[in-house]
Write a protein that binds this DNA or RNA. Sequence first.
RNA 1: GGAUGGGUAUGCCUAGUGGCGAGGGCAGCGGAUUGUAAAUCCGUUACAAAGAAACACCGCAGGUUCGAGUCCUGCCCCAUCCA
Length: 378
Amino acid sequence: MKYQLITTDGRAKRAQVETVHGTIQTPVFMNVGTVGVIKGAVSTDDLRQIGTQVELSNTYHLHVRTGDKLIKEFGGLHRFMNWDRPILTDSGGFQVFSLAGLRKIKEEGVYFQSHIDGHRIFMGPEESMQIQSNLGSTIAMAFDECPPSRADLKYIQNSVDRTTRWLERCKKEMARLNSLPDTINKEQLLFGINQGGVVDEIRINHAKTIASMDLDGYAIGGLAVGETHEEMYHVLDVTVPHLPQNKPTYLMGVGTPANILEAVDRGVDFFDCVYPSRNGRHSHVYTNQGKLNLMNQKYELDSRPIEEGCQCPACRSYSRAYIRHLFKAKEMLGMRLCVLHNLYFYNTMMKEIRDAIEEHRYGEYKAKKLAGMKAGEK
RNA sequence: GGAUGGGUAUGCCUAGUGGCGAGGGCAGCGGAUUGUAAAUCCGUUACAAAGAAACACCGCAGGUUCGAGUCCUGCCCCAUCCA
């Protein structure tokens, strides 16, 4: 892997990351397809059309259904889903948070009760690495715990210490797996994850610790889980400077267009979020004038596209009124069009961000973009 | 003309066969959603804010009863069937 910094504008970075599956231009928004597909009947042909650079899938979910061993036997996730560009796999760490009622955390790892059929699943750092190696993703994430933002100080410190120990095990296991003869992607990359809730000292100490471990990239996790936007931005302000500047910085699970604009301004390169796809499935669409809910009656005769001038597959051919009708009729095409539009909106915004940084007008671009979206909220 | 089944609030559909200030669904409107247990979930959709005061035409009008959406009688309307 090679992280090449092209230019900066304030703290905003414009870079590119070379991987075995192609070059990633950053800042980048990864499109979330948890189970090896973006929900809403989106194909990989669609992804190529809407400018997706990186697809993101999930270790826990693919392990539970349909199984990483099966996918390895098929030839890996790239071949399985017919996607030859980069894939990042999340480690299952987020499921420690989202499936909190269905798991027990121990030093060796996490015992899950399958959310599908209730059977017991053990996942520790080694298991997570093994699964991600079987999937053959471009970038594997370290197995961590994402603690709730309201957890107490002692809990967060213990959790972070354990996450550090798990990271050491992940690194060791990844090195071993990458050296095996039948490994699908022998150049699989490993990103470590910074945790620490909204406690500056824990965040900073943990950032320093993992920065010394020579990983391929560094993620900031445990944000956008209940804290305020101001707290999140503050964590970025104090944490990002302690992560290696010659490696990618990834803010996990974030976020709204405004969150991304602010985080880019604080030096973040990688993003991912379920919002564009989930909101698209719920008829909420992003525009430069804010978010619309196409289910509203006021669109019943609206012949305009979601956004004037948008080149996405939905806006090039269909009206708001027709898409509203598809939702009313519960026809899948409605969801599909909105998801495509939203992902196109995010991917296009990232392209605009990259251009603005290159031209050293990021501050101006950000202010204008935020003002437009805010004005439309009324 | 006869038989049978129905008419439930704000548009539609429906639960309810003696204690009902009547439950639910759809449609409408609003909100939530951030490394996806989410094509999901939550509000709201008469008056009243808790009172011896109120009680929305439960098709309409009477009746029985302490008490009727519920039982009885008559009428109106709708659906299906028979003439």
